[in-house]
Amino acid sequence: MPRPPGVLENEWGALRPAVFGAAYRLLGSVADAEDVTQDVWLRAATADLRDVRDLRAWLLTVAARRSYDILKSARARRETYVGPWLPAPLLTGPDASEPVLVDESVGSAMLLVMEELKPPERVAFILHDVFGLEFSQIADVLGASGAAARQLASRARRKMATAKQSTPHASRAERERLLTTFRDAYEAGDIAGLVRLLHPDAVYVTDGGGKLAAARKYIHGGARIAMVMVRVGRQWRPDSIEVIEVGGEPALLLRREGRAVSVDTVEIKDGLVVAYRRVLNPDKLAHL
């Protein structure tokens, strides 16, 4: 790639994770975030940046404008999405191909909460609360006043705080332990073992995007979920199930014939799984 005027390649290398991280948090899509990051690089490659005093902020605002446009159109696409929508899993462990600033805002639970925010709220919250941009800079992205941007971020912050209070939290060690036990029971087809790990009122969510067979509605109840998962496991016969890190939290990656077929994340309360989320849409797994 050509070197952007006034921007050293090592500067881009250091700032690229933040650009990608902002786009991913805004869009919940690895593919879209990669496209936005490439667009930002191309924009930087042709821009005169000699007078830019805060390169990080400049790059983030360019990424946010592009993401904001996509986000507004994505909300319309969500209405025609087949079945439940889940964010595309982002590898964040030591084997991650894309380094990203990791915090709770890239976890599946918080990304789903942010999906409920209006696009301007999501932009204001992520740019200010996660990446520390000034409201004057955010206002420029949204085409609003600084006061309006501040109000949008405040409104989003309240919604996020309310959702966070009601979202179960478990330590990383507890998640890893339960997922490993869950995997063993799943591989063994042990329905009773799975039932013991699932809350009686647990919910099972699958995102197939209409690309393959997947439940198009939530499945409720630990016993029913266990039976469905064992039946599906017998049909799939995955070659391997490994514990990986996705969005800063442990997850299960299922592979068949070397290809990723699902990534599963969980919410845990009082030592039991209360929400089991499975991404099946092959478009969301292609990067794995």
Rank of each mutant, 00 (worst) to 15 (best):
T181N: 11
L253C: 13
P250K: 13
A260R: 12
W58K: 10
D140P: 02
A88Q: 14
L152R: 09
H220W: 11
A44D: 00
A88M: 10
A31R: 12
R277M: 14
H199G: 00
T46E: 06
T180Y: 00
A124Q: 06
L49M: 10
R56C: 03
E116A: 12
G143R: 10
K269W: 04
Q151Y: 03
F20R: 01
L15R: 06
V130Q: 13
P282I: 14
L49S: 01
T180K: 05
E245S: 15
I191V: 15
V30H: 08
D140R: 11
Q137R: 13
D39K: 11
A286D: 11
L133F: 04
P99L: 06
G247H: 01
L101D: 02
R277W: 13
V266C: 08
L71Q: 07
R175L: 12
E134L: 03
V273E: 02
G6H: 07
A161F: 02
A163H: 08
V232K: 14
E267Q: 15
L280I: 14
R66Q: 06
E245K: 08
L86N: 00
I219W: 11
T46H: 04
L59V: 11
V123F: 01
G93M: 11
A63W: 02
A144N: 01
L152K: 06
L198R: 00
G258K: 13
E79S: 11
R75A: 04
M160Y: 05
R77Y: 08
A286S: 14
L178R: 04
W58N: 07
D35I: 08
E104S: 14
R75Y: 13
A63Y: 05
A14W: 10
P84R: 09
M227E: 15
V52P: 05
A156V: 06
R157H: 05
G258M: 12
G247P: 06
L288C: 09
D239F: 03
D264L: 15
R231G: 13
Q165P: 00
A14T: 12
E242L: 09
T162G: 07
